[in-house]
Each structure stands twice: as structure tokens, then as C-alpha cells.
Amino acid sequence: MTERLTVPKTHKLFIGGRFPRSESGRSFIVTDSKRRFLANAALASRKDARDAVVAARKAFPGWSGATAYNRGQVLYRVAELLEGRRRQFVDEVIAAEGLTSKHAQEVVGASIDRWISYAGWSDKIAQIDGAANPVSGPYFDFSVPEPTGVVAIVAPQKSALLGLVSVLAPVIVTGCTAVVLASESRPLPAVTLSEVLATSDVPAGVVNVLSGHTEEVAPWLAAHMDVNAVDLTGAPIQLAADLERSAAENLKRVLRPPVDGEPDWTGESDVDRIRFVLETKTVWHPIGI
């Protein structure tokens, strides 16, 4: 009896709810933590980045227009689906990050819980950050947080799943849509997460995932005139400064990489990551009869 031949997966991009190869036809080799071949991943190009921004922009009105309760449920559902695929993610995290099985299980558990934590923020943040403003005059004046729009994310380089979820969930819970550039050397958990998102209730285009070279793709996202904010958490410091300069062209909101290196992401969910992609809108109306 011969051993069954396994069927390897083709790792593709995730754009507008579909899984295209790179339009450039290119791919690159992804290895595990011991530099053994894992898979070929799609090598995203400038065109792919632009397509992803178009998809994210298209998805923005619908996603930002959904009720906060609905967005919370959609994010919670992502956690449910991840739970069902726990073992696959544990294996992928072990392969990508070289963690022990026990540690990888903790990381996957934390990644699932992170979705739940941010899901709960969807209908809380407006009450935390909104306000009725006591102005000196006969006006009713209130402020509400609103999603800034399309956010480009350079995902953390080391923590391929927990780090990714920790930067992605706070962006989309607000109603923003995202283009994520996955960890350059550890993109596979991001690709698998895309497959979960594709079969979840997250509408097509709300999350778009690119794999490839950070130095090649990130500059196109940072300079793109239809991107409203860039999270540079996973960008190398030197590159981050260049990206921030490009981002100034249309005054993108910029989140700089942490100065003391990538955190271990084991902390709690971070409301400031939510605030980073929010605008405050203030509305005035006279009071009278």
C-alpha cells in the first residue's frame, strides 16, 4: 500500500472577497522557522495593491453604514470560525514562528479572544468617545466618532497571527475597510485567515490581504491618494520614515512603528488603535420653537 500523496495549497492574495494570484504572475518561496520550504505565496505587485484599495473603497459605504451591533456580530462570528479551525492555525503558527505546540495554542487562543474583545467595542466606542458638548448658546451640539475610510496596514513581521489580528480587528470594528500587507517572511497564517474571513459574514472588500515584499508594496499603499490612514506597525524603522513622508501627500493619518520593537501582543485590546482610525464629527443645531 502506498502512502497517500498530499495536496498542497496554493497561497493566493485576498482582494474584494476573491482569491486571485498576483496579476504579475509572480510568487515567492515561504520557509518555516528552520528555513525549510513551506509553500509558494503570491508576490503582490503595485497593481495588486491598487486593486486592493479599490476593493476596500468600494466596500466602505456598506460596512461603515452597517449598525454597530451588526459589525460586532460579524466580528464575533470570525472568532467562532477561527475556533473551528484552531488546529490548522496552531500548525501554521508553529511552522511560521517556530513556537512550541503549547505556546502556539496559547497564541491561537489569544487571537480568537482578541476578535471577541474588539467585537464588543463596536457599539461601545461611540459612547466612550462621543459627547454632548455644553456650548454657550441655544444650540444642541454633539460629537460622534466616525470611521476614517480605507486603512492600509503593514502587519507585524514576527507575530503572524496574533499580531495581525491585533492590528486588523481594531480597524474594521469601526467601519473602516483595510488593505493588509502580511508579514513578509511569515505570510501563511494571514492567507489562511483570509479564507476564514471569506466564509465569514465579513463583506467582500472589507479586508484585503496582500503577501509580498514590504519594501516593494508598502510605498504604493502609503502614497495612494485614496487611502486615508496607514498603520506602519510592521514596517522597518528606516522604511517607516519614508512611508510617513509619502503618506503626507494627502495628509494620511499615520501610526508609527513602536520605537522599542514589536510588542509580544499578549496585552489587552488597545482602544487607542480604534481611535487611530476614527474621526470626530461635531454637529450643531439651534434650539428654539
Binding site: 459627547a131 458638548n133 455644553p134 456650548v135 454657550s136 448658546g137 444650540y139 451640539d141 460629537s143 470626530t280 461635531t282 450643531w284 443645531h285 439651534p286
Partner: peptide, 11 residues
């Protein structure tokens, strides 16, 4: 139904 109102308490 108003315009150009400003107030220190209003963002």
C-alpha cells in the same frame, strides 16, 4: 440650520 459657530467645549 446655522453656520460658523465656535465654542471652547466643541471639538
Amino acid at each position: 440650520n446655522t453656520f460658523n459657530r465656535l465654542d471652547p467645549a466643541s471639538p
